[in-house]
């Protein structure tokens, strides 16, 4: 477990909202309070644990700034379609 990028244990942050203002303490509700995805608007940023290239790491959408990105949701591994 010395590999820092390996997120086998460390949970990812999920949706990353606007940083809470300094005078209001952060709450979980505020952290997930982001705009719903719409075409023509900024894509909600997120961080998630991932399996890639034989290992585990956390992936953040904003790491891909400057590139075209396709994100695909699907109902589940080992399903049929």
């Amino acid at each position: 477990m010395s590999e820092p990028k390996d997120s086998c244990v460390q949970p990812a942050r999920g949706i990353i909202g606007k940083p809470p203002s300094a005078d209001i303490p952060a709450t979980p509700a505020q952290e997930v309070n982001v705009e719903l995805a719409r075409v023509g608007q900024k894509a909600p940023d997120f961080e998630a644990g991932a399996y890639f290239g034989g290992g585990f790491k956390n992936v953040r959408l904003s790491d891909y700034a400057g590139k075209w990105v396709v994100i695909c949701f699907y109902p589940g591994d080992f399903t049929f379609v």
Binding site: V39, K42, A43, L61, S62, A65, W68, V70, F73, P75
Partner: peptide, 21 residues
């Protein structure tokens, strides 16, 4: 209700803007 993500795909441009869903 099902507790899963349904099929959705999003094209995001280099500025981080959603172009298509």
């Amino acid at each position: 209700a099902a507790g899963v993500d349904i099929r959705g795909r999003f094209i995001i441009d280099p500025d981080g803007v959603i172009r298509a869903m």
